[in-house]
Design a protein around this nucleic acid. Structure first.
Length: 429
DNA sequence: TCTGGGGTCCTAGGACCC
DNA sequence: TCTGGGGTCCTAGGACCC
């Protein structure tokens, strides 16, 4: 008889979609079943999602696509450009199904969710999770893995092991002391959620190789070298739930839009188009969360992977009073760009970041300058947002973002937008 | 030729004030 | 002119996540 884990009474699940982007592509194109499928990042750059067949070929996560393209095609596999509108839509469907199983729910990323199960009257958690897995698969076509334990970090550990041993069938509960120790012993310290490359190296130098050793290490030592964040991780591995579920996503404190260009750009006019576009997107995201920005940063850089002269620079401006008015943010972004732009360099990337973000209702009262919220500017923005929402993005757009758009990213291997564009709906014959 | 984008949190150190 | 402690606010940088 196994002793129950008595340290804490929380029960938390982590559900994670297997090879999410590759799985989404397969839902709509059955020919992709059982062959190697890799999905590329923006500009068809890195491999960001790999089917199991791709993993079996030894292709690492984040590898540049061009290095493995020939090998993947030779093995009968395919590479695809990323299709974020499709993945966003599939994600929403998966999350909807999951929420029927527990109202205490946190969507953690596009393909992961934590669920608080504490207090539910379930005798066999693994049977319960297998049922949930079957339903998600049947209703969305997406396979998931489920880890259940007493803290978020332990649920991550359970999830990690659930997909690494065929016998678990993508479901594992760690709810007893013996299982916890066994699982932690088999978890490399670098595979713990919250421990990245730097801390992995540091811990190994101190003789800590696996998660069990880390969980038993002196908390004062951990705190001294890994801050309170590391200490929380250790406590979570001991079975205490100290990282809460965040059911309502907090408003973002900074909003960034940046992209590499499809080709190298030297011309200031083209850079202005791109920056205008990024400023527009940033400000849209800002209004979506009903916030105003108090500062603005623009940055610009050359291709760090190429030989030759490199130049990177950024510049910040204050927005006072804080605003969410796109024309103003575009104008100031362009001013910053013109200040940092130097002729003679071939640029690969630019970006716009909004920070100093506050909620609309916290806007400072200003007697000198009329607030954006109090005049027709905010009405104009609302009207444009509403048109773009109902008629499609870019129904109304700003002339500054250009018509030719040579800077746009490359997506040469794009699948059709099955769920988001009427023209691309699959036809039933 | 071709190497992603978008976030969070914590800490140290400087500026400034009393 | 010199000395010191303590508090707050801001920013840059480093770590992490997917």
């Amino acid at each position: 008889m196994e002793k129950t884990c008595y340290l804490d009474n929380e029960i938390i699940a982590l559900v994670d979609c297997n090879n999410f982007y590759a799985s989404c592509e397969r839902v709509f194109n059955p020919r992709l079943q059982n062959i190697p499928v890799a999905v590329l990042s923006n500009n068809d750059g890195c491999i960001v999602s790999r089917s199991n067949e791709i993993k079996a070929l030894g292709v690492p996560m984040g590898a540049p696509g061009f290095k493995y393209e020939a090998m993947i095609r030779k093995a009968g596999g395919v590479l695809l450009s990323s299709n974020y509108s499709l993945y966003g839509d599939m994600s929403a469907r998966v999350m909807e199904v999951l929420q029927e199983f527990s109202p205490e729910f946190e969507q953690y990323s596009i393909d992961e969710a934590f669920m608080r199960l504490t207090g539910m009257q379930i005798r066999d958690w693994e049977a319960w999770a297998k049922d949930m897995r079957r339903k998600v698969l049947r209703w969305t076509g997406i396979p998931v893995s489920i880890g259940i334990s007493n803290s978020k970090t332990l649920a991550k550990v359970a999830n990690h092991h659930s997909k690494r041993h065929a016998g678990f069938h993508n479901v594992l509960a760690i709810l007893s002391e013996t299982r916890r120790e066994e699982a932690l012993k088999r978890t490399k310290v670098g595979d713990i959620w919250g421990i990245g490359r730097q801390y992995e190296k540091f811990l190994k130098q101190h003789g800590i190789e696996n998660a069990l050793e880390f969980s038993r290490a002196d908390l004062g030592f951990i705190r001294k070298y890994m801050t309170i964040v590391g200490e929380k991780t250790a406590l979570e591995l001991r079975g205490f739930s100290v990282i809460d579920l965040e059911e309502l996503p907090p408003p973002k404190k900074s909003i960034l839009t940046s992209k590499s260009f499809g080709s190298l750009i030297s011309d200031l006019n083209q850079l202005e188009e791109a920056v205008c576009e990024y400023a527009t997107r940033c400000t849209e995201k800002l209004r979506e969360q009903n916030s105003l920005a108090g500062s603005l940063m623009v940055f610009l850089g050359t291709n760090r992977y190429r030989k030759g002269p490199q130049y990177n620079n950024s510049l910040t401006a204050t927005l006072f009073p804080p605003t969410a008015y796109t024309p103003q943010i575009i104008r100031q972004s362009l001013e910053l760009l013109r200040e940092i732009w130097l002729p003679g360099f071939e640029y690969k990337k630019a970006g716009v970041m909004l920070s100093g973000i506050i909620a609309e209702e916290d806007a400072p009262l200003s007697f000198l300058e009329k607030s954006y919220l109090d005049d027709e500017r905010s009405d104009l923005m609302k009207a444009i947002d509403s048109l773009n929402r109902s008629m499609g993005r870019d129904t109304v757009r700003y002339a500054g973002s250009g018509i030719k758009r040579d800077w746009e990213m490359k997506r040469e291997l794009l699948s059709p937008r099955y769920t988001t564009n009427w023209k691309d709906l699959p036809k039933v014959k």
